[in-house]
Design a binder for these strands. Structure first.
Lengths: 344, 344
DNA sequence: TTGAAAGCGCTAACAA
DNA sequence: TTGTTAGCGCTTTCAA
């Protein structure tokens, strides 16, 4: 603000055309003659004119702003998603208005993003309050839940096939000859945890076995450490554990190795979920279920843009295939290095 | 947009007051009688009225938007900064417009953020193009460089005391009795690398020694791995290495341990810079120089807000103290567990 | 294709 | 304290 004085009127005066002519040269698909256009561009260049996006948004009803709500960025999955998502949105001419939320401030966040006339919202690593969903629906703004879903809500969702992912983990662990297989849950209210866990149990059942032990880590680093201590503290400990995400799996591995002096995978096999960059690092070499970040982002953007441009908000749910990535934190079933999901 | 029909006019009609009365009840410190205020609030509540931030920004010249430019989010230092920064800004009533930039698209990013009438910009993990600096200066918009600085530019900066941090690393490594001390540089054009390296050499000199070897990792994971191979491939290898940031240090540790079968810290001591969360993880236990993220963010916000509210853009440079955090990746000099910077 | 005119939703003088 | 009035910078009819 402060100083961005140059308006379309100034340009018009210099170019000796009407102000609307200036506006037209700067709007896609408006009819301007080549000559007018050139004069306007020249004048604009001389003055350093830049259309005011706020004014444009007001009159056209299109802010080209997308609210992205994020709750915490310490799980590396989300920074990467945020990076790719911004990039993809930028490419389509939209811009990201970033909000950090926690359950406590979500109502004020909703108000603020709606005041800024955002055209869509994506929620990643954040819990959807029913209030948010309602307000957005009322305003006719599409919202997509990234890596989560709420069946009862009108919000769209994009997830990996968590059920199938859980099943893959079970199949791999059973195949590896493990006999006491445990699970460390994330946040029990989350759809990701529910589905991964359900798929995992289903997979175990398909191979005629069941869960040996279970603890809850709440998707936090410290919570996972406690869960690991609880599960592996006894003499009769599990010989394999499926952890609901990589972020927790690292913490579990730390406890197993450093506190309990167990070897991975000789004493215990560990399988995670997400395939964040650290999973490939030498300190962990974590066998995990990979979430297809890129396709998930593409789906998010296309759902959003479509609903914005067609001006119809309808619930859509994209489920992208997950895939097992074998590294060294779990004993191998055979010699195949990569098992694909059988649901493409 | 689509549907947020309710305007201050609608509220005014229902409350039977003027439209300005409505505006006043929603602006800080405007004079409205308790009665009017109440009637307006009631009507607003019934209609679900929400002031349009865009319209407000236009007329008042205050968008309350801050552009945050980021280049890559795979170094965990930045996601965490982004999280805290958004939170701090949100608390002050500002909002983050996020831009992912690379040297190639920076010009278009500048144009876009200026179109949105941002009131300030912070650049983290991104190189400042002189064009950006110039355009912002012309527009009277304060910019603060986070974790970097450009001496010749009008942009403010917030950094840790990288020179002193480098010195601390040298002192610690020399104290640990190492005799062949090497350095792995980040991006050689960056101020962080220049200062950390200069401080490191200065520290070595103060103890009557000099650098044994040096390689460049470019602040990337793969680049650091190559640098480590280059430096440690020879028979006559270093017995200690200071790596210009943690992100690279992890990669270096992976190469040393897994490829070269060297023990840390028995064969080689490794010291990093940043103290990202992973540095504390069991897989690395990295001794490192901690950047004071919280104070750095506070400084960023206060520089920004002050310049926005006083409407004067002047160059300021905040340098916050760095501190050695001792873990297990480097041999100890004595038995003290924490050496503070001597410049508070 | 062009210009004149209206007006998006709001804040900020100004007078009352 | 209140209402009236004049715009902020732009897009979009509407006639020409």
């Amino acid at each position: 603000m402060t100083k961005n004085n140059v308006t379309s009127g100034d340009v018009a005066r210099l170019a000796k055309v009407s102000q609307s002519a200036v506006s037209r040269t700067f709007t896609q698909g408006a009819s301007v003659s080549a000559e007018t256009r050139e004069r306007v561009l020249k004048a604009a260049g001389e003055l350093g004119y830049r259309p005011n996006a706020l004014a444009r948004a007001m009159i056209s009803g299109r802010s080209r702003l997308i609210a992205v709500l994020v709750a915490y960025l310490d799980n590396q999955f989300y920074p990467i998603v945020l990076e790719r998502l911004s990039l993809a949105l930028q490419e389509k001419g939209y811009h990201v208005l970033l909000f950090m939320t926690d359950p406590g401030n979500q109502d004020s966040v909703v108000q603020r993003m709606l005041q800024y006339q955002v055209e869509g919202v994506v929620m990643a690593s954040a819990t959807l309050s029913s209030n948010l969903a309602r307000e957005c629906a009322k305003a006719g703004i599409p919202v997509v839940l990234f890596n989560r879903y709420v069946p009862s809500s009108p919000a769209s969702s994009v997830t990996s096939d968590n059920i199938e992912g859980g099943r893959l983990a079970a199949q791999f662990l059973v195949g590896g000859g493990h006999e006491r297989i445990a699970f460390i849950a994330g946040n029990e209210d989350s759809s990701t945890n529910r589905d991964r866990e359900a798929g995992f149990y289903k997979g175990l059942a398909e191979h005629g076995t069941t869960i040996w032990g279970r603890a809850v880590g709440g998707y936090t680093f410290d919570g996972a450490a406690d869960a690991a201590r609880e599960l592996f503290g006894e003499k009769d400990r599990p010989d394999a554990v499926f952890v609901a995400n990589d972020h927790m799996a690292f913490s579990v591995m730390d406890v197993l190795r450093n506190e309990l002096k167990l070897r991975i995978p000789e004493d215990v096999s560990v399988v995670g979920y997400d395939d964040v960059p650290e999973a490939g690092w030498g300190g962990y070499r974590l066998t995990t279920i990979s979430q297809p970040a890129e396709p998930m982002i593409e789906a998010t953007v296309s759902i959003l843009i479509e609903q914005i441009e067609e001006r119809v908000v309808k619930r859509r749910a994209a489920v992208l295939p997950a895939e097992l990535v074998i590294r060294e934190s779990a004993r191998l079933p055979g010699k195949n290095k990569r098992i694909k999901s059988n649901r493409a």
